[in-house]
Design a protein around this nucleic acid. Structure first.
Length: 573
RNA sequence: UACCCCGUGGUGUAAUUGGCAACACAACUGGUUUUGGUCCAGUCAUUCAAGGUUCGAGUCCUUGCGGGGUAACCA
C-alpha cells in the first residue's frame, strides 16, 4: 500500500461526485466533440525563479486533469523575456514537476516558435492588422488613455503594409536600438479593455537568450506568443490565473485574425494563496540574498525544494491541492489545512521513535543496580507491518522538561512531585524527590521509584495511570541537534501590516529554533537523510538532507503533532 | 475613476444546472486509547443586502453594498 495509489483512488472516487467548473467545461467539450473530443493541456511556467507551492497548484491541475481525461499535457517554458530568465530555473522546474509525480508528454519552449511567430506577425502586417510604431514608451502610455478616457491613435497607425513590412524586417535585423520601435496590433484605441488598445506584439531587446542565443533582438510579448504557441501545440484548454481574464479577448482576437480553426480556450482560475506563506518571487529572493533563510531549499521556504527538504511528500501536496479545489474566487486557505494533510499521511506512514528535546534526568532509586532491560516497542500502532524494535531501560532515564511541573496546573497528568506517570512502553514511575540547583532554583534531577509489576500496560493493583510520557535510556541515548521550524510569516498575509509597512516586518523572527543536546533513541543514528519519523508525543521529524552526516543525522521538525493539552492549559489558567 | 471578474458556516470547496444547502478542515461536547496523537459519535449556515420573476431561487433579473483584477515595450 503506497500513499501514491491511495490518493489516486481518492481522486477517482471523487470524480463522480464533485466536479469543479473546469471539469464541467471539459466534460461538456468532450461530450459535444469540440476539439475532436481531445483534451490537451499545457503547463507554461516562465523560467524566472524556483517553483513554489503556487506552481504546485498549476502543475497538479494541468497534469492531473490531463491524466484524468486520458489526455496529454505539455511542459512549455514561456521564455519570451530573456532579461529575466535562466537555465537554472528550467532545470529546477523539470526536477520539481517530476518530484511531484508528473511527467510531461512533450517539452517545448515558446522560443521554439520564434520563427513561426514572426511569420504570423508578417501575415498580420500584410492584412493591415499590425503596424510598426515609433512612439517612445512614455508617449505611448499617454496616448493609450485610461479606463475613463479612450486612447488616441498613434500617428504611425496609418503606415502602409509595405512600409511596415520593411520596418519590421529592419527591426529584426537589428537596425534599431532598444525601445526605438515596436510592432503593434491594430485593434481599437477606444476599447474599454485596455489590452485591446493596439497592444504590443514585438519589442526590441538586444539581449541574448538562453535558448536562441543572439539570433533574435526582437522578442514577442506574452500576449502575442501565448495563444499561438497553444495553437501550434494543439492545446484544447489553456488554463491560466485570474489576472489574465482581461487578456482573453486579445487571445481570441489573434487566433481569429490568423484564421485558426480549432481555437484553444483560455480558462482562468484563482491562484493558490496560503496564510503564513509568501510566494512573491521578489520577496523570496530578498530573503535568500539577505541571509534570512539559508537558501532556496531552506525548510521554511514555500519553494518545492524547501517543502521537500522540510519533509513534505508529493502525495501530501497533491492531496492538499486537490482538497483546495478550483474556483474563480480569490481565497486564502489556512496553512493548518496543509499541515493537517501532511500529518494525516505521516500518521499512516511514519515510524515512531522516542526523542527527548530538553532532557531532565530521572533516577529510579529502586531499580536493581546495573540492570538493563530490553523492551519491544511498536513502530507504528496503526500499521502492524511496520514491525517492532528494541529499546533499553535502565535506572537512569531522561524525560522532557515539559513533562514535569513542580506546581502543576489543573488537569495535569504528567509528572509532578509525588505523582505517577507511565514511561511509554515501560514502567510506571512515581516522583519522590526533586533536586534543584540551589543557585538558580532550576530543577536538575528527579528521584523516582518504579512499580516492577507495571510492565505491559498494567499495574500491580489495577490502578489507572493516566499520564504517559516519552523517555530515553540515559545510558544508551545519543545526542543531536534538532531544529524547530515555525511559519515564515508571523502574520497571515503581508498586506495585514498596511500599505506603507515594510514587508520584512511580517517575517517571523522566531521561525527557527535550534535545540542543542536533544537525546535520541539510538536507532535514530542510522536514519537515512530525508527519512521522517514521528517522535512520540512531539511531532514528525525529518533527518535533514543537507546538514546530516553519516552516522550523525540532524533532525528538524516537519510538523508538530496536534496539541490538545496546550488548549486545555490555556483555558484552565 | 473606467472596464472586467467574484460574494455559500471560522476556512476551502459542493449543490444532479430552478427542487430537502453537502463534503473536508477548524472549533466545541462526549467515548476509546500504554502517544493529551490516532480512531469513533455528536453539535455548529435560512447562501452579502433589498426588491422582482416563479408553485418553488444559493442558482434567473434589477439595484445597492463588499472584495479582487487590469490601466508594463513583465508574465
Amino acid at each position: 500500500m503506497t500513499s501514491e495509489t491511495e490518493s489516486a483512488e481518492n481522486r477517482t472516487e471523487d470524480r463522480s461526485e464533485r466536479r469543479n467548473f473546469v471539469q464541467q467545461r471539459i466534460d461538456a467539450d468532450v461530450a459535444s466533440g469540440r476539439h475532436g473530443g481531445r483534451v490537451h493541456l499545457r503547463f507554461p511556467p516562465e523560467p524566472n525563479g524556483y517553483p513554489h507551492i503556487g506552481h504546485a497548484k498549476a502543475i497538479c491541475t494541468n497534469f492531473g486533469l490531463a491524466k484524468e481525461y486520458g489526455g496529454r499535457c505539455n511542459l512549455r517554458f514561456d521564455d519570451t523575456n530573456p532579461s529575466k530568465e535562466e537555465m537554472e530555473y528550467v532545470e529546477a522546474m523539470r526536477e520539481d514537476i517530476r518530484w511531484l509525480g508528473f511527467e510531461w508528454d512533450a517539452e517545448f519552449f515558446a522560443s521554439s516558435y520564434f520563427d513561426e511567430l514572426y511569420d504570423m506577425a508578417v501575415r498580420l502586417v500584410r492584412k493591415g492588422k499590425a503596424y510598426v510604431c515609433d512612439l517612445p514608451l512614455e508617449e505611448m502610455r499617454r496616448l493609450r488613455g485610461d479606463g475613463s478616457r479612450p486612447g488616441t491613435d498613434s500617428p504611425f497607425r496609418g503606415r502602409s503594409p509595405e512600409e511596415n513590412l520593411d520596418l519590421l524586417e529592419r527591426m529584426k535585423a537589428g537596425e534599431f536600438a532598444n525601445g526605438e520601435k515596436t510592432l503593434r496590433a491594430k485593434i481599437d484605441m477606444a476599447s474599454p479593455n485596455m489590452n485591446m488598445r493596439d497592444p504590443i506584439m514585438y519589442r526590441i531587446m538586444h539581449v541574448p537568450h538562453h535558448q536562441t542565443g543572439d539570433r533574435w533582438c526582437i522578442y514577442p510579448t506574452y500576449d502575442w506568443a501565448h495563444g499561438q504557441s497553444d495553437s501550434i501545440e494543439g492545446i484544447t484548454h489553456s488554463l491560466c490565473s485570474l489576472e489574465f481574464e482581461n487578456h482573453r479577448p486579445l487571445y481570441e482576437w489573434y487566433l481569429e485574425q490568423l484564421d485558426i480553426e480549432d481555437k484553444p480556450q483560455q480558462i482562468e482560475f484563482a491562484r493558490l494563496e496560503v496564510a503564513h506563506m509568501m510566494t512573491s518571487k521578489r520577496k523570496l529572493l530578498a530573503l535568500v540574498q539577505e541571509g534570512v533563510v539559508s537558501g532556496w531549499d531552506d525548510p521554511r521556504m514555500p519553494t518545492l525544494r524547501g517543502l521537500r527538504r522540510r519533509g513534505y511528500t508529493p502525495s501530501a501536496l497533491r492531496d492538499f491541492i486537490h482538497g483546495v479545489g478550483l474556483a474563480r474566487f480569490n481565497s486564502t486557505i489556512d496553512i493548518v489545512v496543509l499541515e493537517n494533510t501532511l500529518r494525516d499521511e505521516l500518521n499512516r506512514t511514519a515510524q515512531r521513535r522516542m526523542a527527548v528535546l530538553r532532557p531532565l534526568e530521572v533516577v529510579i532509586e529502586n531499580w536493581p543496580e546495573g540492570r538493563v532491560e530490553t523492551i519491544e516497542a511498536v513502530n507504528n500502532p496503526g500499521d502492524e507491518s511496520a514491525g517492532t524494535r528494541e529499546i533499553t531501560m535502565s535506572g537512569r532515564v531522561l524525560i522532557d522538561r515539559e513533562d514535569f511541573e513542580l506546581d502543576p496546573p489543573k488537569k495535569w497528568f504528567r509528572l509532578a512531585p509525588d505523582k505517577e506517570v507511565r514511561l511509554r512502553y515501560g514502567y510506571a514511575i512515581r516522583c519522590k524527590e526533586v533536586v534543584t540547583d540551589p543557585a538558580t532554583g532550576e530543577v536538575t534531577k528527579l528521584v523516582c521509584t518504579y512499580d516492577p509489576e507495571s510492565a505491559g500496560g498494567r499495574t500491580s493493583d489495577g490502578r489507572k495511570v493516566k499520564g504517559i510520557v516519552h523517555w530515553v535510556d540515559a545510558n544508551a541515548a545519543v545526542r543531536a541537534d534538532v531544529r524547530l521550524y515555525d511559519h515564515l510569516l508571523r502574520v497571515a498575509k503581508v498586506e495585514e501590516l498596511g500599505d506603507d509597512a515594510d514587508w520584512r516586518d511580517a517575517v517571523n523572527p522566531q521561525s527557527l529554533e535550534v535545540v542543542h543536546g536533544a537525546m535520541l533513541e539510538p536507532s535514530l543514528m542510522s536514519a537515512e537523510p530525508g527519512a521522517t519519523y514521528q517522535f512520540e508525543r512531539v511531532g514528525y521529524f525529518t533527518a535533514d538532507t543537507v546538514a546530516s552526516k553519516p552516522g550523525a543525522p540532524v533532525f528538524h521538525r516537519t510538523v508538530a503533532l496536534k496539541d490538545t493539552w496546550s488548549k486545555i492549559a490555556a483555558k484552565g489558567n
